[in-house]
């Protein structure tokens, strides 16, 4: 187990979004999270790296084990520096080139020399197919290219876990494919991933395990073939039917 989350709770004011969510990810595994809009998928990811402060729960991550309520600064730093996140809106650093975006974490967080950082960053950008776009600023790149830079930025730090929050939702349809291909390759390379997506076919294809989130809890989980092919719960069936996926399997 690389990550184990126990009874994660999170409220915004009096509005409880996560009501005790528990799950785990094995090393090299791809965990998919699905659920309707507002069900708290992003919140789970953002609680793991403390972009939101969770209310309670227990986290076991690599060799760390701590209670969220008594988490210390070092715990938060550990989570942030050993996970990386890919955002729906890319969030590339606006005044840094593709190369500088990827180098930033290596320079500032890993304290590598400029030469080392540049060498690694070039290699990773080439791996996501952007060898010709190193010196481009985000505004000079297409959405798909920006998201690939963001994935490269996440990969550069060699994190123990990469979290992707709807990485293709903000993309024009013709660019979704190139980004999904990159993510697929990252998964194949053995990276542990936690991915939230509305691309059900993609999740079905790539995930080892899928969580269906509903009402602040995990309503159903299982292997993709089981969850998509033979959902046990009525609300899972309803969600999948709405997502227009069940027809692919039930025939």
């Amino acid at each position: 187990m690389i990550l184990q989350i126990d009874k994660l709770r999170k409220s915004f004011g009096s509005n409880e979004i996560l009501k005790g969510v528990s799950f785990s990810i094995g090393e090299g595994e791809v965990l998919g999270v699905i659920g309707s809009s507002g069900s708290g998928k992003s919140t789970i990811l953002r609680c793991i790296n403390y972009l939101e402060k969770p209310n309670s729960g227990r986290v076991r991550f690599a060799d760390r084990d701590f209670d969220i309520e008594t988490a210390e600064k070092q715990d938060i730093r550990y989570m942030r520096s050993h996970t990386a996140m890919v955002f729906q809106q890319f969030n590339l650093f606006k005044y840094k080139t593709a190369l500088e975006n990827v180098m930033e974490g290596l320079l500032v967080v890993r304290k590598q020399s400029k030469k080392e950082a540049e060498c690694i960053s070039r290699e990773i950008l080439a791996r996501v197919g952007l060898e010709n776009r190193m010196a481009y600023y985000p505004r000079e790149l297409s959405g798909g290219q920006q998201q690939r830079v963001a994935i490269a930025r996440a990969l550069a730090l060699d994190p123990k876990l990469i979290m992707l929050d709807e990485p293709t939702s903000a993309l024009d349809p013709e660019m979704i494919g190139e980004v999904l291909d990159v993510i697929r390759n990252v998964a194949k390379s053995g990276k542990t991933m936690l991915i939230v997506s509305h691309e059900m076919n993609f999740i079905n294809d790539i995930a080892d395990h899928v969580l269906f989130l509903d009402g602040g809890l995990i309503a159903e989980e299982g292997a993709p073939s089981a969850l998509f092919g033979n959902p046990q719960q009525e609300r899972t069936r309803l969600f999948l039917r709405r997502a227009n996926i069940i027809s692919d399997y039930s025939i």
């Binding site: 790296n49 403390y50 972009l51 730093r77 942030r80 520096s81 050993h82 996970t83 990386a84 996140m85 955002f87 809106q89 969030n91 590339l92 650093f93 606006k94 930033e104 974490g105 500032v108 967080v109 930025r153 996440a154 730090l157």
Partner: peptide, 18 residues
């Protein structure tokens, strides 16, 4: 400055100050 810039920086392990 877009909030996402701070979040991206924190998510790769930078401190608030950095």
């Amino acid at each position: 400055v877009d909030r996402g810039q701070m979040e991206a920086a924190l998510s790769i392990g930078m401190t608030q100050r950095q």
